[in-house]
Amino acid sequence: MSAGQRRLDIEQIGDVTIAKFVDKKILDENNIQMIGNQLFGLVEEDGRKKVVLDFTAVEYLSSAALGKLITMDKKVKAAGGKLRLCSIRPDIYEVFAITRLNKLFDIVDDQDAALAGF
């Protein structure tokens, strides 16, 4: 894989960490495991508490990826962090809506909305 282990671009805005997906497709568990490891590192090792997952680049997402996102959300909460999802394109949002995960996750329109009141 050309981008190695790094699956998220990280940017810090105030006390909020923006983690942007690098991949267009988040399908298999290996891929999402690497994303998970990087994300947990932000909370568990770097002590960041407010994390925004930015889906701008993401065109496809599988149920395996949804499963990992759920696990990730729990871990981040357990580590005292908060996770917010943003910039999800409409067809991907439909996947969250069909599975009712739009109720489980804190999903907002874009980065500005994610930063507001976080």
Binding site: S62, S63, A64, L66, G67, K68, I70, T71, K74, V95, I98, T99, R100, L101, K103, L104
Partner: peptide
């Protein structure tokens, strides 16, 4: 809802 599996068939 918090279980990480079981969504493939539904999708």
């Amino acid at each position: 809802i918090e279980k990480p599996s079981g969504r493939g068939l539904m999708l």
